[in-house]
Amino acid sequence: MTRTFRIIQVSDLHFGGENPAAVEAALAWFHQEKPDLLVVAGDLTRDGAKTEFAAARAWLDRAPGPLFATPGNHDTPYAGPGELVERLITPWRRYEARFGIADGAVWQTPGLSVFGVNTARRAQLRWNWSKGAISVRQIRHLEGRLATAAGDVRIVVCHHPLMELTGEPMSSEVHGGRRAARHLTAAGADLVLSGHIHTPFAAPYPFGDGRTLAVVSGTLSLRERGVPPSFNLIEIDPSEIRVTALAFGKADFTVWRSWAFDRRPAA
């Protein structure tokens, strides 16, 4: 890899409960910076309503450059008991009608490969269905995908942070998440991008060479958790990965926090 990639990472847009000023200001910022890729790490909607998906799609259609999205736990029908049957039988139909396949999406350009995995579930054998899960089958599929992209910057996108890390504000208690983080590190993933906790965060997984980074973006909704609406700018060059969380003030975005990590040496 000889070039620098610039990726914008957003998540938890929660259209139906978005912050109107923040989403418009973010769009202007995106056009100014012209990223190589815009990644949306789930929860595009608040209640999985058709009108919310339409609003999310319309907003993202106004954004520059390629788009890569994966769903979150709010992207199934969520508004009430009348939609429970659809949630259980065809949970991702509304998402897929607007954004393509819910599990296993791929986006590639020379030097950069991005792979999606759906960690949200229609239902689970635990009370809180919003928590995440990743299966052995999904992990093996990702390992195969990563193996085909040796030499590229390799990115995995999911909604839930796979495991709790030191300094992370909360855990999404992903079933199979620790195993997934360990296997993705061994498979050479450079970044695992997620959302869900509404607070920007970046740290390496404590496995293998310690060069696989978990990067979480904040929310552009009104559902704030101690941090203003925010998104991440990720810059990747041959030797370093830089993550900058930009938070919304009264009219614009400014730097809230930044991280820098050495990249895994080329094989």
Rank of each mutant, 00 (worst) to 15 (best):
3 R>A: 06
5 F>G: 04
7 I>P: 00
7 I>W: 02
8 I>C: 09
9 Q>D: 02
11 S>T: 07
11 S>R: 01
14 H>L: 00
14 H>S: 02
17 G>Y: 13
23 V>W: 03
23 V>C: 05
23 V>K: 04
24 E>S: 10
24 E>T: 10
25 A>N: 03
26 A>Y: 09
28 A>L: 11
29 W>V: 11
31 H>S: 03
32 Q>P: 00
32 Q>M: 03
35 P>K: 02
36 D>F: 05
39 V>N: 00
39 V>R: 07
39 V>H: 02
40 V>T: 10
40 V>W: 00
44 L>N: 11
46 R>S: 08
50 K>Y: 03
51 T>K: 14
52 E>Y: 01
59 W>T: 04
61 D>S: 09
63 A>R: 01
70 T>L: 09
72 G>R: 08
76 T>L: 13
77 P>F: 06
78 Y>S: 13
81 P>R: 14
81 P>M: 12
84 L>V: 14
85 V>D: 07
90 T>P: 00
90 T>M: 09
94 R>T: 02
97 A>T: 10
97 A>R: 15
97 A>F: 04
100 G>F: 10
106 V>Q: 06
106 V>T: 12
110 P>S: 07
110 P>N: 07
113 S>N: 01
126 R>W: 12
127 W>C: 06
131 K>Q: 15
133 A>I: 14
135 S>W: 13
135 S>P: 13
135 S>M: 14
136 V>H: 12
139 I>L: 10
140 R>F: 08
140 R>A: 12
141 H>V: 11
142 L>M: 12
142 L>V: 10
144 G>T: 12
144 G>C: 08
144 G>S: 14
145 R>C: 15
150 A>K: 14
154 R>C: 11
155 I>M: 09
157 V>R: 05
157 V>A: 02
158 C>A: 15
159 H>N: 02
163 M>C: 09
163 M>A: 13
168 E>L: 15
171 S>H: 03
172 S>F: 00
173 E>V: 06
175 H>C: 02
176 G>S: 06
177 G>A: 08
182 R>E: 15
185 T>Y: 02
186 A>M: 05
190 D>E: 12
191 L>R: 03
194 S>W: 07
195 G>N: 05
195 G>K: 08
198 H>Q: 08
199 T>H: 13
201 F>S: 13
201 F>L: 10
208 G>H: 10
208 G>W: 04
210 G>N: 12
211 R>P: 00
212 T>E: 10
216 V>F: 01
218 G>V: 05
219 T>H: 04
228 P>N: 11
229 P>N: 08
229 P>F: 01
230 S>W: 07
230 S>D: 04
236 I>S: 05
241 I>G: 02
241 I>H: 00
241 I>N: 00
243 V>T: 10
244 T>P: 00
245 A>Q: 06
246 L>M: 11
247 A>D: 05
250 K>N: 14
253 F>K: 05
254 T>Q: 12
254 T>C: 01
259 W>P: 03
260 A>F: 00
261 F>Q: 01
263 R>G: 01
265 P>V: 04
266 A>D: 08
